[in-house]
Design a protein around this nucleic acid. Structure first.
Lengths: 214, 214, 214, 214
DNA sequence: GATGAATGAGAGTTCATTCAT
DNA sequence: AATGAATGAACTCTCATTCAT
């Protein structure tokens, strides 16, 4: 009825992506405002400005929307984290860890709105079927790699890799959760977390900008 | 005109509590297996071996069941934690912290099945109305108190109390979540967590049973 | 366990009736306060001070209670109406009608609390199964008899019996409903209703106490 | 982006109204056959030939359906009655009353099926929330106005206005209920009711077509 | 006989999904 | 492709009725 047969693909593809993204945005907003279970098909459609039926032209089902939401959002974050992990690979243990955490928290700051959703959903297991790899799982993976290097440098035994990774991931999660709920940047806490993790509470020189002295 | 108050109570009361507990157990199991939202009235009733209507003889509504579940389970744990916090109050900072964490993880071990639920639900905000004080919130509170003492002893500035509390709570959560999902005791990790938190990764003497040296 | 084998019947019978009546009273109160559908088994039992199960020792089911309620209450009224109809049989048409209506409204005044229920339920057809003969049906019957006499005295054609009976019954219902909802006696309106019915609006001597003159 | 407001409305609107009306018709039928409380969502849906969910696309809840039923049905009647009351305002008392009643019963004949419901429900107080102005209440209002005029013309004292209105309304209700349950027209009874009300039983010239002579 | 907890059919309502337009 | 009304399974909760104590 409009531009009918000349150059379908490129335009159509663009439109598809635009609508698709609009739907995911809508889902994110609604889920953020009223909780994931409030992100009903009707609510998402209304927020996106499309009809319910349209949702099913773009996604297989409601869970597909939420899965795609998490997937795309993660897809915007995970590569950045992978890059961070990659770029810092060459550094010695401490610097590597510090650099990674710094980048990690910066990335988190850049995606704060999604973060609340992700941290919240982390552990809800059943709510979104097919969500296998969480964001924090990827972070855990990166940290584990770094820890493995620490162990291979004899800084601590290999058996510590796993528990250390869990602890550090937990610390980060705690900080992020806290900051994000207060609507505050978390990147500034990077050194504090790393310093505490590496050298503990007592030795972290108080007063001085942390991570500088030592 | 009616045999009213002499000897019916004790038996009836016992039955009431048994059924009530059976319902809560059922709710816990179902929630644990398939997520909280899978704990429908029908599912709980079936698992408990009672009729749906029976649920409503014991609890006002579905949320009432979940609220009671969390309440009773917490009621079995929180006092133990409070005692732990209280008993260790007299100790100097480090020993106090170590003792508290040890007790904390012991208590957690004793309540592993509920723990998975609690850690999972922590942060789900809206799911259970009226759940004001979470278990982990109480833990955070205790840790904060201990941290405040650490600050008053000039071990670190007062501004560190909050972030340290979050980090340690996060570390503990990470460890508990990990161990509990593997069905393993977590109490043995107490010293490792505390040592790492106090003195950091590198100084924790590797090889030796942690918490002994230094 | 108490008085076991000597004179069971008389005592037991008395108790049975007392409990039975208590249940009906309870049902009446609850129905009056919150509507018939609010007269649940639980509500009736609680109000009557007995257990739910006891209701079923006295009545076959819930509808049986309501049916019995209406039946007993009617049983207290209908005979009085029958007597009124009987006693006035000998009187000439007008006096007979006047006397009957007077007695009718007096009886109604004596049973005001039940009346509200009866008038309300009159016409609800399905709500109480097996309630065939309503109070107002009996009244209609009496009025019809009187009307038939009026017709046989050539005061009006036989075809008027039915419509006249309906109209007068309607007038009475209207008055009763009105007065009863205001909590006011209705007996004083007897002459007004009859005079209006017999001679119409305009001829009823205004000012004078009605029913005296003419 | 969407074909939004040109030509969908008229068709859709028609369908919407058709379905809406079908639902109300279904509700009316079911309520008429088995009583209002039998008009369950399932029963209405089945009778209307739609799914349960569809009801909720048209009405907020079950009470909303019943409320709408009464509202629309009344909306078809009350204006006609208001017109009748209005048009007859200029006439002298007796003619006015006669004309109003005639029109009233004609309107009733045209809405016989709903009438049974309305007369039945009149007085059930609590059954349908938000039903403030019943049909019969409106009739009472009109009659009262006419009666007030009668009083102002000194045909009877002002204190008679209320009771007369109740009586006449009652008479009409009685007639309508009777005729309607027999499936017979009631309009023909207009003069009989008015004549009886105005001049009473005895003076109504028997044999002659009523309302002609005198 | 009295008791009241247990029962489960059935009511109202929601919402993911489908499909005719 | 977009639309949104229709669908009905599934959910929460009620309440008449039963029955072991």
């Amino acid at each position: 009825m409009s531009t009918s047969s000349e150059k379908r693909s490129p335009v159509r593809t663009k439109v598809r992506e635009a609508v698709s993204e609009a739907i995911l945005d809508a889902a994110e907003q609604v889920a953020l405002e009223n909780g994931i279970e409030a992100a009903t098909a009707a609510a998402i459609a209304q927020r996106a400005g499309v009809a319910v039926g349209t949702l099913y032209n773009y996604f297989p089902d409601r869970d597909g929307i939420l899965a795609a939401l998490f997937k795309t959002r993660r897809a915007a974050i995970v590569p950045a984290l992978d890059v961070a992990a990659d770029e810092t690979k060459a550094l010695p243990f401490e610097e590597r860890l510090r650099a990674y955490v710094r980048r990690l928290l910066e990335v988190f700051d850049d995606n704060a709105s999604f973060l609340r959703l992700a941290v919240r959903a982390d552990g809800e297991g059943a709510s979104i079927k097919g969500r296998d790899k969480t964001l924090m799982t990827q972070v855990l993976h990166h940290i584990s790699q770094i820890m493995r290097e620490g162990a291979s440098r004899k800084l601590f035994p290999l058996t510590r890799v796993e528990p250390y990774a869990r602890m550090l991931q937990g610390s980060l999660k705690g900080m992020v959760l806290w900051r994000v709920e207060e609507g505050v940047s978390v990147a500034d806490d990077a050194d504090l977390v790393v310093d505490t993790f590496l050298r503990g509470v007592s030795t972290t020189s108080p007063g001085k900008p942390h991570g500088v002295g030592a």
